[in-house]
């Protein structure tokens, strides 16, 4: 396959460094998502212990 002429990269979109609308930083939001996972695992563990 012959290599075509390289495409010129499209201009970058401007809105790359927006802060999230809540919790102040993306790091805090990621902590909430991972904390939610940990909470779900804890609840599932309790359910398994209680019923299985």
């Amino acid at each position: 396959m012959s290599e075509p002429v390289p495409e010129k990269p499209a201009p970058a979109r401007p809105e790359l460094d927006e802060t999230p609308p809540l919790l102040g930083s993306w790091r805090n939001i990621y902590v909430v998502v991972l904390g939610n996972l940990a909470l779900l695992v804890l609840i599932f563990w309790l359910l398994t212990r209680a019923f299985n």
Partner: peptide
């Protein structure tokens, strides 16, 4: 219902 299901191993939500 969860107790009945759990009695026959259906509430095995998590396994470490």
């Amino acid at each position: 219902a969860a107790t009945l299901a759990g009695a026959v191993g259906r509430m095995n939500v998590i396994d470490f």
